[in-house]
Amino acid sequence: MAQALNGLEYGMLLFLLSVGLTLIFGMLGVVNLAHGSFYALGAYAGIAVAVFTGSFWLALCVAPLVVAGVGAAIERSCLRPLYARGPNAQVLLTFGFIYVFDDLLRWLWGSHVRSVAPPAALAGVVALGPGRFPVYRIFVILFGLAVALLLWLALERTRLGAIVRAGVWDAEMAAGLGVNVARVFTAVFAAGAGLAALAGVVAVPIQAAYPGMGVEILVRTLIVVVIGGLGSLEGSLAGSLILGQAETFGKAWLPDSSMFIIYGVMAAVLLLRPTGLFGRALR
């Protein structure tokens, strides 16, 4: 029971990360390898705000906005000139940003593991059947579900959401009907970066922050996107929940093979559905 909840909580973190990555890929065609770096940047920025102001909640609001701004700046200044050059240039560029951010974080905050305690209101544990479970982890699960619901409403019920869904399908045609797609690209990239940073802040009280955290989570996030299918919110949620459970139970039961298990899950999904659970065939 506790393992399943841990898996759910971890899955929600993966969802916050992968939903941005999958929408960015679906719309902009960019595999943003720096996505994990936004997660790490969010974690460290969150710690800075929490330490400075003493408020975790303020950190949860401010850090994602800062990182979204960083994401918007990178998209406009560095990625935009490369869209015409195809995906290889973009993958190389975002790969480079992994090292830039990694060095930046070590330079600013050093290589130590850092953490902050969960806010006082979420500090305790609750009894769950025979065992006990931290309140903060329950908060993460509910928070992730709330973000998923808000994102779904934004995508399905608003005009900007319709533009994003249409852009994931056929960005050129959206432009041909008068939509300034470049501006929407920036907004989606910034929102994805902000969501990754949100995951980073939320993760800090559980997993702490360390310089390699971005790359470590990036691998999982990419697997989630592959399992769920590119460009799909539903796929991102489903893939996150599956991988969250697979890795958590893998670590508990077969600690030596937990990496093998998550790759095994990915291989199995790809064999059954080559485009991922909610993916579509490439045109």
């Binding site: 319709a162 249409a166 045609m173 009907l177």
Partner: peptide
């Protein structure tokens, strides 16, 4: 523009496609 192959937005409903632009 009415493009070759129509290029409707498959994730969108008929009404959403219609008022898209």
């Amino acid at each position: 523009l009415v493009p070759q192959g129509r290029r409707l937005f498959a994730p969108l409903s008929v009404a959403e496609n219609l008022v898209f632009g």
